[in-house]
């Protein structure tokens, strides 16, 4: 996309544009998110929400201890979250480090999960503290290995010291590396940006630089995808759409562990960006433990009795 009507890409034009964004009042944003958290989602809506949430999960493993075996198991889970119930949808994507991309891709293809994308975290995830050539290579490797979604991190140090041009350039370059082959999710690492004003600014910076998704967090920093942070990012994509007619996705990652947490996120999406964003093409939840809780709640809705972890798989 070309947003030359808004910015010319120079440091000065970015600064000027970001300065025009209204501030975010912390208390107001948090009380709005808290109010939406009181929405009571019941019965058919809850069943619908659980399946929707499952289809939005980016099932993630990002550990130093990851092995091909662990990743393959995760892929199986992604494909068939509940082996006893074929009506459960598959998840939105698998999310791994770049050296595990080929393992994941091959296994998914093997088990019939051709339409489940593999997302790779790149650009020296999670800190992003590496030279640009390394970040480019990191991304290129992942794409070559079959990743069709790239989760990059922004340079928070550059952002916090006001070097918006640098942040913008890095995203732009990674976007060029992705080209048509991969969707780009830009991780803001909101826990390190600290203020909602910064979250809003970084969201716009990422969108203007070419992000297809803006993503809250790496999952390695707390706080992560808190409801008010997601609220501010959803406001950003909603207003960016009004301004440009381009719909950018949002990925909430980190700290979303229960069905209740996930449904709160869906309510936020529904009442902020709107129902158009309620699909895996525009909203994702980065998580690992969440999926089993969704499955247990699904069993409860289906069977009318409380479920046991013994009946969900722990891969």
């Amino acid at each position: 996309m070309n947003y030359s009507a808004i910015i010319d890409g120079s440091e000065a034009s970015l600064k000027n544009f970001l300065r025009t964004l209204p501030g975010v009042d912390q208390v107001g944003a948090e009380s709005r998110a808290a109010m939406l958290a009181t929405r009571s989602i019941k019965n058919a809506t809850k069943s619908y929400a659980i399946d929707l949430a499952i289809s939005m999960v980016d099932l993630t493993t990002l550990e130093g201890a990851d092995t091909p075996g662990k990743v393959r198991a995760l892929c199986s889970k992604a494909m068939r979250p509940d082996p006893t119930d074929p009506t459960v949808p598959h998840v939105g994507a698998i999310c791994v480090y770049n050296d595990m991309v080929s393992v994941a891709r091959q296994h998914l293809d093997l088990i019939g999960g051709h339409d489940i994308p593999v997302a790779a975290v790149t650009t020296a995830f999670p800190s992003g503290r590496a030279s640009m050539p390394v970040k480019i290579q990191d991304t290129q490797d992942a794409i070559t290995a079959g990743a069709t979604e790239i989760d990059m991190v922004i340079d928070r140090g550059a952002f916090l010291s006001g070097q918006y041009g640098q942040v913008f350039e890095e995203i732009k370059i990674i976007k060029e590396v992705c080209g048509e082959k991969a969707h780009l999710k830009v991780i803001l690492e909101t826990g390190e940006l600290v203020t909602y004003d910064n979250v809003r600014k970084a969201s716009y910076l990422a969108m203007l630089a070419g992000a297809d998704f803006i993503k809250t967090s790496t999952g390695k920093v707390s706080p992560a995808a808190t409801p008010p942070v997601v609220l501010v990012m959803l406001e950003a994509v909603r207003d960016f759409y009004s301004m440009t007619n381009v719909k950018i996705g949002v990925k909430a990652a980190g700290g979303i562990r229960t069905t209740k947490d996930a449904i709160k996120q869906l309510v936020l999406v529904n009442e902020t960006a709107g129902p158009d964003w309620l699909n895996p093409g525009l909203f994702r939840i980065g998580a690992s433990a969440l999926l089993n809780d969704l499955l247990m709640q699904r069993m409860k809705m289906r069977d009318g009795r409380y479920a046991s972890p013994n009946y969900v798989t722990i891969d």
Partner: peptide, 10 residues
């Protein structure tokens, strides 16, 4: 049309 119409929660 979304099915995320909130069911009654009285």
């Amino acid at each position: 049309m979304s099915n995320f119409e909130y069911a009654p929660a009285p």
